[in-house]
Design a protein around this nucleic acid. Structure first.
Length: 427
DNA sequence: TCTGGGGTCCTAGGACCC
DNA sequence: TCTGGGGTCCTAGGACCC
């Protein structure tokens, strides 16, 4: 019995989200920026046509942006996360076998579907998601996940495909493989692409013919699997319940260079607070905390980067305790005389939060701490995040990340709901 | 002046143990 | 001239993903 996987991939996802709530953006070039308004991370087709590159820093694309009349947005993850959930919910209408692979992609296992019905099912999924969420998607269907990725890529680039490509038992399989450049194959990054090109392998069709033992030697099992998957041997199963999370990071670039220990402490306290919130929302606790701090690698100035690992006395998700350890870490790695650009906190060795296991000489009443955090989280959920804050996070936070072009949080914030436009005043 | 953030997996090599 | 072998655990670094 053959597998059939579908990859559902949202087109230009962040831009599409902005357009749902602002239809005037349809047909116009639009880009969405990374945190700190630094790089371009989502582009409409019109923006791509202007030659604006993925990942380009905004300041380098300024000219094209101005000349093309490009609409620019800061990223609005509250909005995108919520839209993503709506898309995924829609997909569950078709099958419970949904692997949410990223914010804008999901794999579906369609092995139960009759081969003759696969293409039609793909078209129905695409139409339903568009009708219910306003998000356009591409659908790729094939016998392995890697081939489904190939199919979705072809679906995106071909007008004729109308958003759906089915490669199961398709006479066009080789044609499709040939159209996908080596660096666009799932799992082939810049380094492997360079290696393969020096051996004359330039597209997915040629990669399929590569000796898989050679591939194994040069690129480990991950590369070998790609070759096998391209040949139709499924090596990557659908992950219905992904293994529990192993690490959790909160880090940000500063809105401006930061030099003083006081400001670094504030920022790290802030990031630690966010990390602890994430931990609790996922019902986890951490055993180890890593703090890191670095200068701007793009600047011609003295460089310094450091990190330190703090093993916690017991697994915890208690904000004040985590802040305390994080700040002790900051004291260790901070050096005066540098312009810092970024800091962050990573939590590892995550374990399920309850029941609380106390160390022998634990001075903290962990049950009380947990109740306190529940109360704080509830208040912040109801009254808006940062209603209750920890003093260590500072008041003015002048180092904060820039977000100058953010759209309203249309779907997750009462104050920012979409309102009907006032009709223009009659004159 | 302006260059994101958050993840995972694999391997090699050293430390350590019997 | 001659220097075990094999297992486990940990870490750092590299590669990739969106």
């Amino acid at each position: 019995m053959h597998h059939a996987f579908a990859l559902i991939d949202c087109n230009n996802f962040y831009v599409s989200c902005e357009r749902v709530f602002n239809p005037k953006l349809l047909g116009r070039p639009v880009v969405v920026l990374s945190n700190n308004d630094g790089c371009i991370i989502s582009r409409s087709d019109e923006a791509k046509a202007l030659g604006i590159k993925m990942g380009a820093p905004l300041f380098q694309a300024r000219e094209a942006v101005a000349a093309g009349g490009v609409a620019v947005f800061s990223s609005n993850y509250a909005l995108y996360g919520d839209m993503s959930a709506r898309v995924m919910e829609t997909l569950h209408e078709f099958t419970p076998e949904v692997e949410v692979y990223s914010i804008d992609e999901a794999f579906l296992d369609l092995s139960g579907c009759r081969e003759a019905d696969l293409s039609e099912l793909g078209r129905r999924i695409r139409a339903q998601v568009y009708q219910w969420t306003g998000i356009p998607v591409s659908v790729g269907i094939a016998e392995t996940k890697t081939l489904a990725k190939v199919a979705a890529r072809v679906a995106k680039s071909s007008c004729k495909a109308r958003g759906v490509v089915n490669l199961v038992a398709s006479p066009h399989l080789e044609q499709a493989l040939e159209r996908v450049a080596i660096q666009d194959v799932w799992g082939i990054g810049p380094n492997y692409a360079r290696l393969l090109r020096t051996h004359g392998v330039t597209n997915a069709l040629e990669l399929r013919a590569v000796d898989d033992r050679w591939m194994r030697r040069r690129t480990s099992v991950t590369g070998q699997r790609i070759v096998l998957e391209l040949r139709g041997t499924s090596c990557l199963p659908l992950e219905l319940c992904p293994p529990s999370q192993r690490s959790l990071t909160v880090s940000r670039s500063f809105g401006r260079p930061v030099e003083t220990l006081a400001e670094v402490r504030e920022a790290v306290a802030c990031y630690t607070t966010r990390a602890a919130e994430k931990l609790r929302r996922r019902q986890l606790a951490a055993n180890v905390l890593v703090v890191f701090l670095m200068t701007n690698r793009f600047r011609d100035a003295p460089q310094y980067a450091a990190s330190t690992v703090v093993r916690l006395p017991a697994a915890t998700a208690y904000t004040p305790e985590l802040i305390g350890h994080a700040l002790a870490g900051v004291e260790q790695i901070y050096r005066a005389g540098y312009e810092f650009k970024k800091a962050g906190v990573t939590l590892i060795e995550l374990v399920p939060e309850a029941p609380v296991q106390s160390a022998m000489f634990d001075r903290l009443d962990r049950e009380r701490a947990q109740r306190l955090m529940q109360t704080v989280d509830e208040i912040n959920r109801r009254m808006g995040s940062q209603t209750l804050r920890f003093a260590a996070t500072g008041l003015k936070q002048t180092w904060q990340t820039r977000l100058e072009h953010r759209s309203p949080r249309f779907t997750t914030c009462w104050e920012e709901l979409l309102r009907p436009q006032k009709p223009p005043a009659k004159t």
